[in-house]
Nucleic acid binder design. Sequence first.
DNA 1: ATGACTGCAAACTGTTTGCAGTTAA
DNA 2: TTAACTGCAAACAGTTTGCAGTCAT
Lengths: 141, 141
Amino acid sequence: MIIIRKNVKQIAGRPVTTQRSLLLDIIRRANRHLDADELYRMAKSKAPRISLATVYRNLKLFKELGLIAESNLGDTHSHYEIKSAAEHHHLVCLGCGQIIEFDSPSIAKATAKIQRENGFYITSIQLKMEGYCPKCKQKKE
Amino acid sequence: MIIIRKNVKQIAGRPVTTQRSLLLDIIRRANRHLDADELYRMAKSKAPRISLATVYRNLKLFKELGLIAESNLGDTHSHYEIKSAAEHHHLVCLGCGQIIEFDSPSIAKATAKIQRENGFYITSIQLKMEGYCPKCKQKKE
DNA sequence: ATGACTGCAAACTGTTTGCAGTTAA
DNA sequence: TTAACTGCAAACAGTTTGCAGTCAT
């Protein structure tokens, strides 16, 4: 697979180190939620000397820069994914662990209303619904 | 303050130990989110020999029994509160840290719709919105 | 009597930090 | 050149676990 990294001279004004662009690249390509350790192992296969501390430091940076979103999908540790334009939410199946992402105009409307009513300036919305997907629901019955 | 604990012979079929009922009592009376350490310290003032492990073990039990709800309000550790009939959500102010709870019929409608559309059987909904409350918003301007 | 509980201390996991050396701009 | 980065190892916070003893039923 060819890695295209032309014209990337900076990451939001920060120096582009090989580790940094590698990490962001992996997250971009993953197209799913990664946790710090997954990301670390994936990065390590390309850059064996990279450290877990660097992974955490860059995740923190990416988050501050608004490039990625953090979510607590399991309850033990965080997951990260590229922030796309569309705000979306998560359905977590307690049976098989699959995570379904979805976007919902009705949620967007509802949250906008809450924002107005409370005078809050909202910067992020995290909606997680837990339950059982159709397959696992059936298994339980 | 008089602690009423008559007629409580069991907690969902589990033996009622002094620690257990004390802990549940504190959570019930708190009427707000407690973290494990707060709960531990509050319990310790009544039962000095109680251990943090017991707090965690019982929080886990209460959660399994559906008596309390866990949420990740800060990002470092969990908070717990009594599960009331009404599902409610959280607005977290990133400025002053205050947490506003709210209930929203429009959210309830939206999530019910998602449930139908996805064939999911939903057991819990956690909505967290982060941002700035009116006061902190003003300070930032 | 006995299974479920408790306190204690030690282990474990996920994350952060201090430091000395390295690198992008 | 120099501020920002990196790897490493050690520290840290929150939580869990093994064990021997205690308690509710």
